[in-house]
Design a protein around this nucleic acid. Sequence first.
DNA 1: TCAATACATAAGCAGTTGCTTATGTGATTC
DNA 2: GAATCACATAAGCAACTGCTTATGTATTGA
Lengths: 104, 104
Amino acid sequence: MNEDDLFRALADPTRRAIFEKLAAGSMNASVLREGMGISQPAMSQHLSVLRSAGLVREERQGRFVNYEVDPDGLTHIAQWLSKYRAYWPARIEALKALLKDMDQ
Amino acid sequence: MNEDDLFRALADPTRRAIFEKLAAGSMNASVLREGMGISQPAMSQHLSVLRSAGLVREERQGRFVNYEVDPDGLTHIAQWLSKYRAYWPARIEALKALLKDMDQ
DNA sequence: TCAATACATAAGCAGTTGCTTATGTGATTC
DNA sequence: GAATCACATAAGCAACTGCTTATGTATTGA
């Protein structure tokens, strides 16, 4: 779970779509695959990449494997991003709102 | 300058190193290449990728081309990240500090 | 226990990536 | 204006990626 794995995992649009879908709520690999237009092994491989990047974690439930967003990966990106805060324009309203949320 | 270009640009460790070096201060491609162990064309190609991703911008100065961090790319990543704020653990102190900086 | 289900792994392949050397293009300097 | 310097582009190539089909491995239920 290093920086390289993280950015490389997010570099693929299909994996970002999977991640985004999981962010809406945890689900198993089969449900996750619905409407994505890829084979079952492809999904399994993508989930493996996301998992070793720390973006997703799994929990076996019977013969299903439930996947959910792992905050660790997101935290790592936030830390990477924070290194460059000197370059952020002051007018990022969305981010300001985010910070206010975090103060609660 | 879409999301795909952004994450794909950051997926390469050499490009992240270039970006990090530029974050410490703008400089031209030759100075940037010092100690990086890649050829001049390789550097030119990396800078081209970073530029079309919106992470870096250039300004010709005589026969030199000065490169600097483009805040647009970072803003875009921050926006992407903010979509998943629901999953951030409350204890991200670094980010909290960042937010306080931005309120000024 | 045997068939079915959910998922992972193996193997192979076409397309992409990052690098190199070679060459082209502006800008400067003599 | 010819040589030089800073950088970009072209072409080619080895390595990597993301996909497929085929097969393996747990888990469940009849």
